[in-house]
Simulated assay, not measured.
Amino acid sequence: MQLPAKGTPPPARDASGLATLLRTAGATDTVLAATGGWLLSERRSSPATQDGYIRDVSWWLWWIQARGMDLTDVSFIEADTYAAAMRHAGLAPGTRRRRLSACSSWYAYLQRADAAVRNPFHRMDLPKRASKPSRYLTEAQLDDLVMHAVAHQSARTAAIVAVLKATACRISELTGVQLAALGHAGDHWILTLTAKGGRPHRVVIDDDVTGPLLDAYLAERGSAPGPLFATRTGARLQRSYVQELLQRLASSAGIPDPHTLTPHAIRHSVATALLRAGEPLDVVQALLGHADPRTTQAYLHVDQLERSPAHRAGRRLAAVVARRLHSRTGTREPRPADIAQAT
């Protein structure tokens, strides 16, 4: 049995769709109630997090329904078969790991509610986490991105880019934040974001750049309740729209490889720039809203690139090239094409 092709919409996108899918799969009232409790628990209290878990679990429900199985009594062999089907369908390791982890969490909760015989995903071998490095920009490139938006784009675009740079917020925080989240604490203008797990995460809006750009945007937006960054119809922005916006902006600003730029890359870049500038780790951790400082330390990896022996080897090679050119033609600065001729 094969899974649908990549890009196929999930069988359920929200709680109502998941309930319908559960009933179709023969779920009892106990299973439905336990699933509701699972979604409302502390770790999944954020609506965006709930939607993600719903989508991931819905694929498993589609699978066992198509296989004609009892969702409360599935063997670990079937769970391994499902994992293999995802791998053969070409799903990324991160996607497979997320879906399997979601199912394991759900079954663990069903077991607590005496609504499932076992957790077929318990102690399963999960795909390894991807280790590819994240894209990041230099601080100068971040500044260029903001300046280009101010000079050539709408007030909303300029405010979006400025807030991303000033707060290093996650894309879910940016698209989900409401106008009512803007407020004051003493002399500071505060934006209260919703971090992972539904935790409130307060960040300061500076008075020099971000504040004035927000003012200019709000003068156009008006004071109607709703998302801070809204469409013309008042709906919240989509993640894909923000990413495409950043990539178009990076392209017009002359930033290399604009198609690889993501909202997370902006967050990564801000954290890296602050750490390299000497900001204390705990200060950057608080800005990013990380619960564990080890997560923040991951952004220090850029210094390893700066300290790479490749730079020192390159400088030694340049010195050799310069000496050979000097002995042949007199003193002049080496050009890239000279390297092949002199070595």
Rank of each mutant, 00 (worst) to 15 (best):
L3V: 05
L193I: 13
G37T: 10
P336F: 00
R96L: 04
P120W: 00
L193R: 07
T81D: 13
A310P: 01
D215I: 14
A113P: 11
N119L: 09
T8D: 02
E306A: 14
A84S: 10
D70W: 15
L39C: 01
I64M: 11
A253S: 00
A340W: 15
T30K: 09
T194A: 03
S75Q: 07
Q153Y: 00
G222S: 01
P200R: 14
H188C: 06
G36F: 05
D143Q: 15
S327P: 08
A318S: 12
R55C: 12
C169Y: 02
Y109Q: 12
K196Y: 03
A235Y: 07
R156D: 02
C169W: 03
I64R: 05
R232G: 04
R324E: 15
R97G: 10
L287Q: 01
I266M: 12
A322V: 09
R96K: 05
R239H: 13
A322M: 09
R307C: 01
K165D: 04
A342S: 09
S16V: 14
G197I: 01
D208T: 13
E220G: 01
A12E: 10
G254P: 00
R312Y: 12
S327I: 02
T343A: 12
A33H: 05
T343V: 15
L164R: 05
A102S: 15
A5Q: 11
V161I: 14
S58I: 14
C169S: 04
L228Y: 01
Y217S: 01
A158P: 06
A25Y: 06
P309Q: 04
L71M: 15
A310R: 07
L91E: 04
S251N: 13
A158W: 08
A12M: 11
A318E: 04
A235H: 13
G17I: 10
A66W: 07
A83G: 07
L281Y: 02
L246G: 02
S269A: 09
T30D: 04
P47F: 04
Q178R: 12
A12T: 14
A149F: 08
L214C: 12
A250N: 10
L213T: 09
D187K: 07
G198W: 07
R312L: 15
G52D: 15
M147G: 04
H264I: 03
L281S: 13
P334W: 08
R129A: 13
A89Q: 09
G7Y: 06
L18Y: 09
H201G: 00
L317Q: 08
P127S: 15
S75F: 10
R23F: 09
R55F: 03
A250H: 07
L110W: 04
Q65S: 13
D29M: 07
A25M: 08
A181P: 00
